[in-house]
Amino acid sequence: MSNKIIHALYDDDDVLLEAVYDIRRAHYEVEEVYTPFPVHGLETAMGLEDTRIAIAAFIYGVIGLGFSVWMMDYMMIEDWAQNIGGKPSFSYLENMPAFVPVMFELTVFFAAHLMVITFYMRSKIGPFVKATNPDPRTTDDKFLVEVAIRGDEEKLIDFLQKTGAIETKIVEKHS
């Protein structure tokens, strides 16, 4: 099977959104869409699943909370209990009101940073990563749809132009 794809370029988000529906309804495969800004409804149009990154963030937050409790229990109660301002230092629970601020901060710290790291890793972005958008105009005002070629090339190009594509280009896909 050839791994040729078509790059179809659109210049309007509403046209793009309808085009993506039409392409999928015509049983072609939309491999990727590059847009300069988030186009709402595009996930549904492409049939993307919901992201679970918020769930991950919640789990990271719980880990952060657990870590802060363990850390302060070890440092303030187990390892070297001290009498500070008469605050009870014999059990974590009794001393806990003084620990709430740090428990909260570390929950947020873990949730926020680990979530963003997860996002960067899952989306393969980070320092020294090369951008993969095929056309530089897709960060400005154009929208690019990658469609896998199946069957008649000409027919597909014709079809894409009917959906409102302003440019179409056949390219060899590398990966």
């Binding site: 990727e32 869409v33 590059y34 847009t35 300069p36 800004f37 988030p38 186009v39 595009l42 996930e43 492409m46 993307l48 992201t51 990154i53 918020a54 979530m115 963003v116 996002f119 960067y120 899952r122 989306s123 393969k124 972005i125 980070g126 320092p127 020294f128 990563v129 090369k130 951008a131 993969t132 958008n133 897709t138 960060t139």
Partner: peptide
């Protein structure tokens, strides 16, 4: 500094959720 941002649909979805 743009960390290789390409504007893929899935990236935007995650971006908004994040």
């Amino acid at each position: 500094v743009s960390f290789g941002w390409s504007g893929k649909a899935k990236d935007w979805q995650r971006f908004e959720e994040v």
